[in-house]
Design a protein around this nucleic acid. Structure first.
Lengths: 249, 249
DNA sequence: CGCTATAATATTGTATGACAAATAAACACG
DNA sequence: CGTGTTTATTTGTCATACAATATTATAGCG
């Protein structure tokens, strides 16, 4: 039995890891009890122990199992994961995209509220610079997607919370990746781009003025409109009332 | 040269992966260009190719590198990570814990706002049941930590957004894990526990009444007080104004 | 008989060597 | 100069061997 099985797939460990993770998730293995030994799994999947080993390494890394010598890879009590992933999301599913957008809106609006009360002078400078870059891009006919992303990153940074910053970067790349996937024919419409830019300015002004509630609503509104531009209607976490208008009754 | 190097650490691949990830993060490798070949890395770290392989597998899994035959493990453009982790947080660092708490407060308050407008009848039932379990636990002298966690999970579920739900579960285990780490002598005070329970009831009532703004503030207040009970003062993302009081002016 | 120290044993951790697969780069050829 | 072919390098997978480790069984002792 020498040589690879067939060469029909070039990522054996990935496949094995997926299958095992699925079975663990469905409770096919008792938590606290060990999985079958590596050698046995190797036999069952028809691959070498090396592949099993690499697959198990992933599960360990995610905290799904924890392996100990002489006992095996024991299944750790549910919900002790060490990593948060969004792999199972389907880029073509509108529902998944909506859920993701919703989470992003929630987090980013909160970050803006924090940024309003915590930002430093350089934060505002950075954001202004990036907005100017977008303007410049629009004048030259380009879309300015890159400074746009930078602006949102600035917002995260200005929140003064590195954990939040980190998560927002993760989410944003995920969202933009999914959007790119979902619709290659991005909207090149300059009128829309100008609208977006207005929303950006409102956000910056709100943050700069130190009004966290206004900043929060500005981002919420921006996110909701952004989702709409993608053809998605999302519920605004702050409540569907007061959409768009601000706080003066 | 047979046998492992010394047995001074039981997880070589983990260490190697950490080092490599750090070096990549600090830009010591050019993005788009391949890392040194596995054999070379093995030599450099003084371990076998097996270990390097397992370390690289982790980096690949997180999307930091992407390996192709004949060219090597190329460094993928920054910010394309496939997993969000909180491993680098120090459980003993008050700052880290505060940042984590802040993110949690932000997300969970948003989830509550969503739950207020989206919950179904069974969601409320579940939450009531878990609150009752806490009451029961308090009467028997126990702390009721487990139904407490369940109540927060219910909130996530009632938001109707599975992605949000998933993330909240991840965050909550992370937070509670860090708290357990940080202070073993948990507060067994029954008076405090009763206070917490009052806050829970306010949250449930707010969600049940469909008032998302009130739900959001109730959770925010609960989180802030919870942090205070842990000796942490956190900034409330919704803005420091209006703390605790509700919306009727 | 019950408790503790020791040995047997199964399983993971790591090392080594071999070969297959894939592909970028060098090369040959028209 | 462009294009197809060979070559070389690197990853992917397999197989085997031994070390480390902790569980379990066993033996020894009070």
């Amino acid at each position: 039995m020498a040589g690879p099985i067939k060469s029909d797939a070039h990522k054996l460990p990935e496949k094995v890891a997926r299958i095992l993770a699925g079975e663990i998730g469905q409770g096919r293995f008792v938590t606290g009890k060990p999985l079958p030994p590596e050698s046995e799994l190797a036999e069952r999947f028809g691959v070498s122990r090396t592949v099993i080993r690499e697959a198990l390494a992933r599960l360990k890394y995610d905290g799904l199992v924890e392996s100990r010598p002489r006992v095996g890879a024991i299944v750790v009590p549910a919900g002790q994961r060490r990593a948060f992933r969004l792999d199972s999301l389907d880029p073509k599913s509108g529902q998944d995209l909506r859920n993701l957008y919703e989470l992003r809106a929630l987090v980013e609006s909160g970050a803006a509220a924090l940024a309003a009360v915590r930002h430093g002078a350089k934060d505002i400078e950075r954001m202004e610079k990036h907005l100017a870059s977008i303007d410049q891009a629009l004048e030259t006919g380009r879309l300015g997607a890159s400074p746009d992303l930078a602006f949102h990153r600035d917002l995260a940074t200005a929140s003064g919370n590195p954990v939040l910053d980190d998560f927002m970067r993760f989410l944003n790349t995920k969202v933009s990746g999914m959007i790119r996937m979902a619709r290659r024919k991005s909207n090149q419409d300059p009128v829309l781009a100008a609208m977006v830019q207005d929303e950006h300015r409102e956000i910056l002004e709100a943050v700069g003025s130190g009004d966290s509630e206004r900043a929060r609503r500005a981002v919420l509104s921006h996110m909701q409109k952004g989702a709409l531009r993608q053809g998605l209607e999302i519920v605004i976490p702050g409540g569907p009332r007061d959409l768009g208008r601000h706080l003066e009754p």
